[in-house]
Write a protein that binds this DNA or RNA. Structure first.
Lengths: 188, 188
DNA sequence: AACTATACGGAGTCATCGCTCCGTTTGTCA
DNA sequence: TGACAAACGGAGCGATGACTCCGTATAGTT
C-alpha cells in the first residue's frame, strides 16, 4: 500500500475528484451520476473509476474525509471549550452545518449500526462521548443520558433539518426542546 | 370525475395494486420497481400504469390512503383520550409504527413544505394541532411549543427510527428526552 | 348468444447509470 | 532528449427501470 501515488497528476486529480464529488453530491444528492462528478472535476470518467473503483468507494472517501475534519473540531472543543456549554454548542453547530454535509448525514443515517465499522467513525463517536462526559460532569446534562440516545437525537435532527429544509429559526426552536430534555431537571 | 370506474375488474385491480404497492414499497423502499408491484398484485405492468399513470401517482395514492387512516385514529384520540396523555400516546405510537409506514415517512420527510399541499395532509396536521391544544390546556405540554416544532420533532424521529432501525428500547429512551423537553418544567 | 366498449398483459422503447477497455497522452528519469 | 511505465479520456457494454402500444380477453348489455 504505497503512501502516495507515483505521479503528480494522479495525486492532483484524486484531490480534484474528491472536492468535486463532495460538491456535486451535496448539491444534488448521492444519486447524482459519476459522469457529473467527472465533468465537475474536469476529468474523464475513466479517471474517476481508476481512483475510486466503485461509486461506493467514492462516497466512503468523502465521508471519511468529512468525519475526520469534524472529529478534529470536536476534539478542540473537548480540550478548550467550556464544559457546560461546549456540548450544546457542538450539537447546534452540527445541525446548522448539516445542509452542507448532506452526503455524510445521509450515509450515516442509512448505515445505522455501521457507526462502529470504520476507524474514523469510531473515533468520531468516542470524541463525542468525551464531550458528553465533560458536560455531564459539569452538571449540564442529565446523568442518565447515554451516547446512544445523544447520537440518535443528533442524527435524526440533522437528517430532518436537511431533508425538510428547516430554517435557522425552526432549528433553534426544535433544539431548544431537545436541550431542555437533556438538561438536569430542577427537582419539583 | 366519475365516482367509480365502470367495470368491476378495474375496481378490484385498483385496490389490489394499492395494497401490493404499499407492501412492496414498505418492504424494499420506494426504489422498488413498478414491475415488482405488478407481480405482487398479480396483474400486468400495463394495468398498473393505466390506474396510476406515473410511479409518483401511485406513491401519492398510498400516502393519501395512509394519512387518512392515521387522521381518523388521531381524531378518535382527540375526542376520547385523556387530554393529559393522549398527545404523548399518539407521538409514541407514530414512532413505533413508523417502520410499517416507510413510504409515507420518507415522502413526508422529503416533500418538506408540501405539508400544506394536499387536503388530507392539511387535515392530518390540523388534527394533530387539536391534540396538541388539548394537551396544552391540560397542562401537559409547554404553552410556547407550537405545532411546527412538534411536527418537526415527530417527523425527524420517525425518519431516523426507520432509516437507522431503532429498537423499541432506543425509541423509548429518545422519546423520553424529547417528552421531557415538551413538558412544563417545574419552576426551579 | 352476440356484440362492443372497456380493461388487461407484456413485449418493446427509450433513457440512464455504473463500470470496462483500450488507444492516446504525459510525467519522470536516465 | 528519448523511452517507457503510469495515467488519462471517453466510446461502448450490460443492466435496469419508467412508461407505451396494441393485440387479446372479458364484463356488461341487448
Amino acid at each position: 500500500m504505497p503512501a502516495q501515488p507515483a505521479r503528480a497528476d494522479a495525486r492532483r486529480n484524486r484531490a480534484r475528484i474528491l472536492d468535486a464529488a463532495a460538491e456535486v453530491f451535496n448539491a444534488r444528492g448521492t444519486e447524482a451520476s459519476t459522469q457529473d462528478v467527472a465533468r465537475a472535476a474536469g476529468v474523464g470518467i475513466g479517471t474517476v473509476f481508476r481512483h475510486f473503483p466503485t461509486k461506493g468507494d467514492l462516497l466512503r472517501a468523502i465521508v471519511v474525509r468529512d468525519v475526520e475534519e469534524l472529529t478534529a473540531q470536536i476534539e478542540a472543543l473537548v480540550t478548550d471549550g467550556d464544559p457546560a456549554t461546549a456540548f450544546f454548542a457542538f450539537f447546534t453547530d452540527m445541525v446548522a452545518r448539516a445542509s452542507s454535509m448532506r452526503t455524510i448525514v445521509r450515509l450515516l443515517g442509512e448505515s445505522g449500526a455501521d457507526l462502529q465499522a470504520d476507524k474514523p467513525l469510531r473515533l468520531w463517536r468516542s470524541t463525542i462521548e468525551q464531550l458528553l462526559a465533560k458536560a455531564r460532569d459539569a452538571g449540564a446534562v442529565r446523568r442518565d443520558v447515554g451516547a446512544e440516545e445523544v447520537l440518535a437525537l443528533l442524527l435524526s435532527t440533522c437528517q430532518a433539518a436537511v431533508s425538510a429544509g428547516w430554517d435557522a429559526d425552526l432549528q433553534q426552536r426544535t433544539l431548544g426542546i431537545i436541550f431542555d430534555g437533556l438538561r438536569i431537571r430542577p427537582s419539583p
